[in-house]
Design a binder for these strands. Sequence first.
RNA 1: CGGAUGCCGCGU
Length: 314
Amino acid sequence: VQEYVKLLKFAGQAKNLAEGKRIHREIETSSFSSDKFLSDHLIDMYGKCGSVHEARAAFEQSKQRNWNSWNVIISAFAQNRHFHDAMFAFERMPKRDAISWTTMLKAYAKAGELKEAVNLFDNMLKRDDVAWNNMLAAYAQEGNLCKALLTFDLMPQWTVVSWNTLISGYLEHGCADEATKLFDQMPEETVVSKTVKFRASAQAGNIHAARSIFESMTERDVVAWNAMISTYGENGSSDEAKKLFDRARERNVISWTSLVTAFTLGGQIDRATGAFKRMPGHDSASWNFLITAYAQTGQDTESKRLFDELPMKD
RNA sequence: CGGAUGCCGCGU
């Protein structure tokens, strides 16, 4: 069972619908076909792969539907911007826990329905850290930094995530000075904080400062590596991007797409194509990127040819 | 009890 859970999660992260379906079929012929954990993971996998219809089907057909399944299906609806379905399910579900409320809160924020989000938040009986952070993030993304700061001050607990959320909000809306002050005040920094920090330096045009923050990091995850690679790419330094890419010990689709981007922006479309071909797996974003790149450099025929080669058009 | 779904940073 746990093996299948891992496989489904992996397919979901990679948004690999074909692989997900394959595992689904394999599960159905196995002895775990009606496992109560697996059925929820199936719904989640379809949601993450962008297939709302199959997520819904998995939910409705599940013999093992429980109150967790409702949370999973709401999350699937929300991730795919089916907000009315999410709302409908939320109202119909037999039992709502902290996660149900917060998932719905995030859905409203994502839909741009800030008032509904606030309303939901106010009606919550118990607000945990994640609920507070979601409310904070909703204000921060909206650009309502006053409300964001107010929410931050009212929070019963400050975690690294709340600090990161607030700082990202300030950075996103051009308040770099405030962000710097907050960085100095926060008690601890994680990989995420450091990544936010060096991205901010880079966006301010100080790529050397960004690099030294990156090099000073004791732990770097794949996102940190990718962020540094795309920073050099945006800067036109495709050679430096390539060097970092080679140094990275963990790579995913985004790392490869960032490298392709770096070559494209550096005007080396042939090297970009080469990297694209060497990629172990392509998702729709990487295809879109290269097609757009060709179109923008005026190579419409190449762009069209790639489009025709697309295995999945969404 | 355990499993599972919700918050912050990377390419489109």
